[in-house]
């Protein structure tokens, strides 16, 4: 039982074993949360959405194709759910002052890394929702242009133009002399 495959756990979950699904959640929750965090850039909201992803996945576990890999699937589900969430909100959660630990107490090196990722998050959160999701799918989930087009149900030409434009914006934001 200590090293059940994802597949075994899905089979058990389908028979109503919530604990088996809980084990899957334990395996992928950080992954899924980070997908949501990279798209939403707000920790609490990202955790809520990640929870929602797993609840939905559990309710639809019977529709999951057992031959597919669970990890990539759940991360794509997460990206899509975040996109829907952002689009339903319509209010761009522009640059949340996300400062959860007070930086003065941290060592300088850690502070620098933290500040830089802060800047990256801020740059990304300035992008339109569908740009963020395309960045997520290409850079973090490593989908091809075609796979992204299928996943988001948009033309290949849009995938490319959105992705390239998103990178251009990020380059401008991140490499501008002092943001």
């Amino acid at each position: 039982m200590n090293a059940s495959s994802d597949r075994d756990l899905i089979v058990l979950a389908r028979r109503g074993d919530a604990g088996a699904f809980g084990e899957l959640v334990t395996r992928y929750q950080v992954n899924v949360f980070n997908v949501c965090y990279r798209i939403l850039h707000e920790r609490g909201e990202a955790e809520d959405l990640a929870q929602e992803v797993f609840i939905r996945a559990y309710n639809r576990i019977h529709t999951f194709d057992i031959e597919r890999e669970f990890g990539p699937w759940i991360r794509r589900v997460a990206a899509n759910l975040c996109l829907n969430h952002l689009e339903s909100q319509k209010v761009t959660t522009e640059i949340n002052d996300e400062q959860d630990a007070d930086p003065a107490q941290l060592p300088e090196a850690v502070q620098e890394v933290r500040e830089r990722s802060e800047q990256i998050h801020q740059a990304m959160s300035s992008l339109p929702a569908h740009y963020r999701v395309i960045i997520e799918l290409r850079h973090y989930q490593e989908l091809t242009y075609d796979e992204i087009a299928v996943e988001l149900n948009i033309p290949l030409s849009d995938v490319k133009s959105h992705l390239f434009r998103a990178r251009k914006i990020l380059a401008e934001k991140l490499h501008a002399p002092d943001r």
Partner: peptide, 10 residues
Amino acid sequence: LTRNLAAPFT
């Protein structure tokens, strides 16, 4: 994460 998302699935 700051909470355990597996909690509802015990």
